[in-house]
Design a protein around this nucleic acid. Sequence first.
DNA 1: GTTAGCATGTAAGGAGTTACATGATTTT
DNA 2: AAAATCATGTAACTCCTTACATGCTAAC
Lengths: 212, 212
Amino acid sequence: MRGRSDVLEPAILGLLAESPMHGYELRKRLNLVLGSFRALSYGSLYPALKALAAKGWIVGNDAPVERPVATKRARIVYQLTGEGKEHLQQVLASAGPSAWEDENFDVRFAFFGQTDAETRLRILEGRRTRLTERLETIRQSFNRTRERMDEYTLELQRHGLEQVEREVRWLDGLIDNERGVRRARTESEGRPALATDDAEGSTEAHTEKERG
Amino acid sequence: MRGRSDVLEPAILGLLAESPMHGYELRKRLNLVLGSFRALSYGSLYPALKALAAKGWIVGNDAPVERPVATKRARIVYQLTGEGKEHLQQVLASAGPSAWEDENFDVRFAFFGQTDAETRLRILEGRRTRLTERLETIRQSFNRTRERMDEYTLELQRHGLEQVEREVRWLDGLIDNERGVRRARTESEGRPALATDDAEGSTEAHTEKERG
DNA sequence: GTTAGCATGTAAGGAGTTACATGATTTT
DNA sequence: AAAATCATGTAACTCCTTACATGCTAAC
């Protein structure tokens, strides 16, 4: 049991729920949704699509799909089936540990738009707990071994610690936001969501540099 | 060709170069040196140790090693052979792309104490180039697709971008430091290294010095 | 006397990659 | 006409994990 992460399956289903696509296009979108911008290989993608089709969650080419210019090559456009949609909703509604593990969290977060508010909050809180536990572990081993470590190992540790701390603060902002939205909804039917301020942390950070 | 990362082998050799150890102890240390604090399983470690022994780079139990209390169980203490040391030095002296890829960089950095200054600088610069390339890719796809993306996917992207930007700034600090040390050495026989400015970090201290 | 931690290992399998293979279409 | 990009796929392999298996020692 515990088939483990299988981060590809929900990622594909989630993207196809937004709109039908063929494999090549899917791949580019997947890189944005999967963790840390890794380039997924076709050797993983196409077999995964076949497996999903075999399970009856997606079908290829059933819908013609308007072709703006001359149809290039074969191009199998996939879309969700009824069962596929049902399965995806079930996956997106689950808020167990697997949802906030490293490998899965990014994908789950990317599809928060298709996830209900309660589940979103539980996943964010689960993730936060997970990271603070890790923080404790790191801090302990840090304090236990700092004397014996050389400067570079120490710096690596310090930097890792800082990254996790920052991640926790990011989650805090998101959690505040989710709670704010829920409260606003309950109280007075209000407000879209997210990134009203810029969730602290970044200040003048992102963008800028070049750009005119 | 291209056997790929094999991040475990250099990590084990690097740690054993610092001091002989048995597997169980090695595992705990490995978690600090390998990327992102993942817990390495014994199912990977022990076969890896056997493979290294088969290659003649390490040997088990040749040195008695003082036992403070009653010797628990078997406990095979491994240490580097002459060939192992030679091989490790060769690995640590290489500054090719594999040294600054995601999977390998942390390990290489952790053993910078056993790496010469020139190689350190080349690896840091290679890593920096790699990350700024990635930054470009992310920014482009970000700008191309931001209209069509929902708020959560957008936030995930923004957060990822920010993380990479921060990583680049961290590298800038390290590179400055390396250059500073080299200049100091050449000029006047000097100075330990690293973390002259902020260093400690932990709770929200750190950051924003705005260098030129 | 049983639970927790130390210590070492093996077998099976999962999730992905690389390298190979093919071919159409657009751009230079 | 060549090169780049679009588009799909397969086979072999790699690295690592999980689950299983063993047994010793310390503490409760």
